[in-house]
Design a protein around this nucleic acid. Structure first.
Lengths: 152, 152
DNA sequence: TAAAAAATCGCCCGAAAGTATGAGGGTAAA
DNA sequence: TTTACCCTCATACTTTCGGGCGATTTTTTA
């Protein structure tokens, strides 16, 4: 309702002004301008009617303001392979495969089967890995590899 | 502009109606009602003025549309100890200690030294852990424990 | 306080894991 | 083509692990 205040003020002012003019005229032309007062009143009333019509029959103007609300979603930290350290330590492709399977809890025999090589081969890879990772146990090797992001 | 059609139609209809009335009167009262035609015109004009005023001076309603913007955050993954599963699996305090040290790459002998108990004790704890975690190797136990958030 | 659960330790044995050493074949760079 | 890796495999040996018993001593709990 506050939004229409300017309209109301305008209408009211107009009415007051008209009546003021009439009143000034009345002071020396007396009452022979009664018809013009009537016309002024008509004008004011129909102006008000127009305003009321527009206000009630018009759908309200709606201005859309797009507000961006930021929603933070936690992401399960994507693993980024540390290629640099892998190369620096001289860990080969095959060794890395063995390392990954080791970390997943597979035994040397299982890894051998999975990679279609002999158990001895896996043992060799494992030994080389331990040397390169400066570990004396597979659990230690896995720990180091994980902190270095060599494996997820 | 389409929204104001009803208003325009109303206003136009009113004007037409007024002129129609005047025209009907004119047929037998001839031209001595010129003043009333004038008043009718005033009414129509000021109605239009009121409509125009309301339409131009009305402030639009501001509607806020909230748009959700997704922001992905790399979670620094703070470790939250999964006490529920630890209890569900019946893992004791001491066993958890052994598990943690195992995951850090310590041998059973080293763990025994660190916890001031015998190697055999650690072996029993380890065995019980493997049963509870349904693992057959320490590396497997560590993997499972990590995915369950029993250890960091 | 009695029962249950947890922690401690021991022994044996077999299965993995790890160490050491050697060696053959493949590939890519010097 | 020679050198240098890398992958492969083998044998022999040592160490560590893990499973399967059993047992005693705390704690904890009902």
């Amino acid at each position: 309702m506050v939004k229409h205040r300017s309209v109301l003020i305008y209408g009211t002012s107009l009415a007051i002004l008209l009546f003021l003019l009439r009143w000034l005229e009345l002071r020396y032309i007396i009452f022979d301008h009664a018809m013009e007062i009537y016309v002024g009143a008509i004008a004011v009333i129909f102006t008000a009617l127009g305003i009321w019509l527009a206000l009630t029959l018009t759908k309200p103007k709606i201005e859309r303001v797009v507000v961006e609300k930021e929603i933070y979603i936690e992401k399960a930290k994507a693993f980024v392979f540390n290629e640099a350290d892998t190369a620096k330590l001289g860990i080969s492709k095959r060794e890395l495969e063995v390392l990954q399977l080791m970390a997943q809890g597979f035994s040397n025999a299982e890894i051998a089967t999975r990679l279609f090589v002999s158990l001895n081969t896996i043992k060799t890879h494992a030994s080389n890995l331990f040397i390169k990772l400066d570990a004396s146990r597979r659990t230690q090797a896995i720990e180091k590899a994980k902190t270095l992001s060599l494996i997820p």
